[in-house]
């Protein structure tokens, strides 16, 4: 039996890597992928606690998170296609329409 702490610490590490990727990466698609990484890290914590408590609520929440992530991916990639079409770049530093 693997202790729950291990899963939670792995989840925190993956979430931290996702945060770092979100700040460091400059390609808008990769930034979007780091959001998915963070969502996955949270899902792992949900399932680990669900198993530790012997209740299934956490696993149901994971399914809802996956549904929300799927819709988010569909809308977000639509926005990315729009940005690429209008500004001919995927670099977030060149998407500076609102910058003074």
């Amino acid at each position: 039996m693997v202790p729950t702490n291990y899963y939670v610490i792995l989840s925190a590490i993956l979430f931290g890597l996702g945060v770092f990727a979100f700040i460091f990466k400059r390609n808008i698609i990769t930034i979007f992928m780091s959001i998915e990484l963070m969502l996955n890290a949270v899902n792992l914590a949900f399932v680990a606690f669900s198993q530790a408590l012997g209740k299934l609520d956490g696993q149901v929440f994971v399914l809802f998170v996956i549904v929300v992530a799927a819709s988010e991916a569909a809308v977000g990639l639509g926005i990315i296609i729009l940005i690429a079409r209008n500004r001919q770049t995927l670099n977030v530093e060149r998407v500076d329409l609102l910058k003074l």
Partner: peptide, 27 residues
């Protein structure tokens, strides 16, 4: 960014790892 991410992950891991002792005891 690296500093922030390490601090965040460390803080979350430390806090939760401390507080899951009751979870560990649960059947």
């Amino acid at each position: 960014g690296l500093l922030l991410a390490v601090a965040l992950a460390g803080f979350v891991a430390a806090t939760i790892a401390k507080s899951t002792e009751s979870v560990q005891a649960a059947p």
